[in-house]
């Protein structure tokens, strides 16, 4: 689309020049998808254990919890904000559930407490950012310390263990065949967030705010309300992730989910979401989650230690953003 083609006037202006499918083909998501397929093939060639459905299902646990937070984080980052406190919310929500469990609360109450803690933490972030107008990056660095700090005050170097067996279903149970609850949750959330971001008024306004919050306000968009809701959503997703993770581990330590926030942000950025806001998509984040999961699993099968995988993830993050820029520089 060049400036020279802008001569069509009035009624004759077409809706679209490039059909949606054609644009999708040239998109970041397609490139990422090709990468994912390539990794998938490479993995299946490298290890005979890779293509086993149960192994693949097991491997999904290493990204599902982060991915469901990443969906909400993607919307938050598209709107021009960020939440670095998500892992700390997991810690606090898990601690709250542990306290309730110790007091003898039944499983449904545990779940409600996990969700409520997430929502309260999200509301607190949202109030500080949208209500008081403070910059989200430092606010959530602060609440990250605060939320996890509260978990440390409760637990010290101790832990809550002995969750009821029924509670274990969220992190260890299967809905049908190899499809675990977490995997199903991941798929459902991908669809829900995909619709929310791409097919609703709300999602449209999220993009508008991320592109130009001032113009959004000058167009009648209630910018702060939407920002608040996004923090609430991110808190809620962190609460859900806390339920799954606590259930899967069967215990709560204050150091639970340490470093998750950076992996979640990496997943979002790798998925093509602009860290400065304004663009990105849920399908991109889904594929990025799969890529990260496949890399981790594949290297795990080859006995490559976790920390080396993190080098690869870090290098992937920088190179996927640097390479197009380098290419552009080389061309001009």
């Amino acid at each position: 689309m060049t400036a020279t083609s802008t001569s069509i006037r009035g009624r004759e202006i077409p809706d679209r020049l490039v059909p949606g499918w054609k644009r999708a083909l040239k998109s970041w998501e397609t490139l990422l998808f090709v990468v994912a397929v390539a990794i998938f093939i490479a993995n299946s060639l490298a290890s005979p254990y890779f293509l086993d459905p149960w192994n693949l299902s097991d491997a999904s646990f290493n990204f599902t919890e982060k991915a469901i937070i990443a969906f909400a984080m993607a919307m938050l980052i598209i709107a021009g904000e960020i939440d670095l406190s998500v892992a700390a919310i997991i810690a606090l929500a898990s601690t709250a559930m542990g306290m309730a469990m110790t007091a003898g609360a039944p499983v449904p109450v545990l779940v409600l407490i996990g969700l409520a803690t997430g929502l309260i933490c999200g509301a607190f972030n949202g109030f500080l950012v949208a209500g008081l107008g403070l910059p989200s990056i430092v606010v959530t660095i602060g609440t990250m310390s605060l939320f996890r700090g509260l978990a440390y005050i409760v637990l010290g170097d101790g832990a809550f263990t002995g969750y009821p067996d029924a509670f274990g279903w969220f992190g260890q149970g299967y809905v049908w065949w190899v499809f675990s609850f977490e995997l199903v949750l991941f798929v459902v959330m991908a669809i829900v967030f995909g619709i929310l971001l791409h097919a609703t008024d709300f999602g449209r306004r999220v993009y508008v705010i991320g592109n130009n919050a001032t113009a959004a306000r000058f167009s009648g968009v209630r910018v702060d309300r939407i920002r608040f809701i996004l923090f609430l959503l991110t808190g809620l997703m962190s609460g859900i992730a806390a339920i799954c993770l606590t259930s899967r581990l069967g215990s709560t330590r204050p150091s639970i989910a340490t470093g998750f926030e950076l992996e979640v942000v990496t997943m979002v950025v790798l998925g093509g979401v602009n860290i400065l806001g304004g663009s990105g998509s849920i399908p991109g984040v889904v594929i990025a989650a799969l890529v990260m999961g496949l890399v981790t699993f594949g290297l795990g099968l080859l006995n490559v230690p976790g920390i080396v995988m993190s080098i690869i993830i870090g290098a992937l993050l920088i190179s996927v953003i640097a390479l197009p820029r380098l290419w552009k520089m080389a061309r001009t």
Binding site: M1, A3, S5, T6, S7, I8, R9, G10, R11, I13, P14, D15, R16, L17, V18
Partner: peptide, 26 residues
């Protein structure tokens, strides 16, 4: 698209398509 076409044609908008980035217009 229908609403956009309605109002932009009355203003004699010139663009390549209604899907064009506003930042690329004069």
């Amino acid at each position: 698209f229908r609403m956009t076409r309605d109002y932009t044609s009355r203003l004699d908008l010139r663009a390549a398509s209604l899907d064009q980035d506003v930042g690329l217009l004069s």
